[in-house]
Computed example of a mutant assay.
Amino acid sequence: CRPAARGGGAAGRQRAVVDRFLAAARARDARALAAVLDPDVVAFSERGPVHGAPAVAEGAAAFAHFADVARPALVDGAVGAVAFVGGRPVSAVAFALREDRIVTVSVTTGEDRVRALDLAFPDG
């Protein structure tokens, strides 16, 4: 794990979208989740792909307990977040964005699998 440089511009806008996603997941706010998801968003996890904003928002609500302990991060170079429990990384999520909307969500779970990712955390 390495620190990530803070940035403005596109990186700052992407980080703001991720922050809104995490806040909406923490609040279990489907309307706020829908506002940051592209209607045709696809989420990938060990369970297989999930298509469309309603289904992905529902899955994000299930992620809410991890959102409570998630830190913003770069996950394999993509904006995302890593959830920690007892100081151990247990889940990572990476996002692909288009025009300030999330179009792809990639979820990795399990401490060993998360540690195998290239993770970088913003300063502060």
Rank of each mutant, 00 (worst) to 15 (best):
A4M: 11
R6F: 10
G7M: 01
G8Y: 03
G9F: 11
A10I: 10
A10H: 06
G12L: 11
R13Y: 02
Q14M: 11
A16V: 09
V17A: 03
V17C: 03
A23V: 01
A23D: 14
A24G: 07
A27F: 02
A27G: 10
R31I: 03
A32T: 02
A34K: 02
L37P: 02
D38V: 02
P39K: 07
P39G: 06
D40Q: 14
V42E: 15
R47H: 11
G48P: 03
G48N: 06
V56E: 00
A57L: 06
E58V: 06
A62C: 00
H65T: 11
H65D: 12
F66D: 14
A70F: 10
R71P: 01
R71E: 15
G80R: 09
A81T: 08
V82E: 14
V82I: 08
A83I: 10
F84D: 09
F84G: 03
V85W: 08
V85G: 03
P89V: 12
P89N: 13
V90L: 02
A92R: 05
A92C: 08
V93F: 08
V93Q: 11
A94L: 13
R98M: 03
R98H: 13
E99V: 04
D100V: 02
D100W: 08
G110Y: 05
D112T: 06
R113D: 13
L119K: 03
L119A: 04
